[in-house]
Design a protein around this nucleic acid. Structure first.
Lengths: 207, 207
DNA sequence: CTCAAAAAATGAACGCGTTCAATATTTTTT
DNA sequence: AAAAAATATTGAACGCGTTCATTTTTTGAG
């Protein structure tokens, strides 16, 4: 059997990832030691590092899964018709926020964000940034769709506005994960309030 | 002499801070080891930790200085008269960005931001967040001043708009410090473009 | 001036992420 | 099937931030 090595490799990869995400959720990212993850996966510490560049790399798999799913859900929302700008934005952004804690805890998000800022040259950070850009682009796409359907004024720069809105969404999400007390509904309400003036001003008036 | 202890203390505090900022600028935050900082300041490692809670705490002194100065400069800008919304925002935001690298390198900013996200319960993070909120409030204040002077439409929610604009400013600053290639002028231009539609829509039309 | 209590300084030791030279296993060659 | 080459595993050791029991210095009361 020639695929013995490849099979073992895939198996170990899965075991390590499973052990890591289990431990992250159980004891938190910081308290989950590589030694523990390795032990739970039945490998040595050194082997862990043959499979993952470092501890932070383990997070990216999870972050990726999370964002990919939300992007898909977002496309479905854009495809639908929308009454007005504020509602459409609320739906898309609400989906982002509602989904955000499916696979990741606030602590895991904080770690991921923190890493992506601290070491921008790493693959981790670059993948994270790329996901952010796709989300940003999706908000732009929604606004353009609304414009095409006559909901948004023709003279509005969709990309500029979309980036503005998304960066606010993102910054508010950072505040959200920094504050263990804050809940998703409070977050959505705050962002809706911040979006309201712009949403109103950019709408095609129907009176 | 009764103040001997207090005097020595102040002196050491100054020496440690001086050594730390010197080393941070010379070799970068990560490569500046506590051992080196302590040695340059002529104290032991343990003493360093009697004066500062941890390595990150050393950054906050610098971040604080930086932001305090920029807030003062911002107040002066708000006090002036302004032709239109876009220009006023550009001036205030431009001042933020122009000043940002006076005391801190991009790497130091990244570390500070990273720390403030990773450990939100620490005094470091809380001081950082407080400074952010004061900056956000200043942008709101500018917009309100413009509204009072009849430059901004009366029906605009100044706080909502100000927060939206500031969060974009902040997020773009994160992108800026993550990218060693990006310069301040590019950053200012991007943000101006993002602000343009909102600035235009919220203006009192003079035609 | 003496000395006990308070405050400050010290550096060895610890925890944990990460590395790497040595060892073991699998694959290929003959 | 044995030897050689390629690949994977291992855990002790390292670096650096942080801690803490011990030692030194300062203070003020008697």
């Amino acid at each position: 059997m020639s695929g013995l090595r490849a099979q073992k490799k895939a198996d170990k990869n899965r075991r390590i990832l499973e052990a890591a995400t289990t431990l992250f959720r159980k004891v938190g990212y910081d308290s989950a030691r590589i030694e523990d993850i390795a032990e739970m996966a039945g490998v040595s510490v050194g082997t862990f590092y043959n499979y993952f560049k470092n501890k932070g790399d383990m997070l990216m798999a999870t972050v990726s899964m999370e964002v990919e799913e939300v992007l898909t859900a977002g496309d479905a929302i854009i495809a639908r018709e929308h009454e007005d700008v504020a509602t459409a934005l609320f739906e898309l952004i609400g989906k982002y926020y509602d989904h955000s804690l499916t696979y990741l805890s606030k602590e895991m998000w904080r770690t991921a964000m923190s890493l992506s800022i601290a070491q921008p040259e790493t693959p981790f950070s670059q993948r994270y940034t790329a996901l952010d850009h796709r989300l940003s682009k999706q908000v732009c796409d929604l606004i353009r769709a609304l414009q095409d359907r006559g909901v948004v004024r023709k003279d509005v720069d969709c990309d500029a506005t979309g980036e503005l809105v998304f960066n606010n969404v993102n910054m508010m999400f950072i505040e959200f994960v920094k504050d263990e007390e804050m809940d998703v509904d409070g977050l959505k309400a705050s962002v809706a309030r911040q979006n309201a003036p712009l949403a109103s001003l950019m709408s095609v008036k129907t009176d």
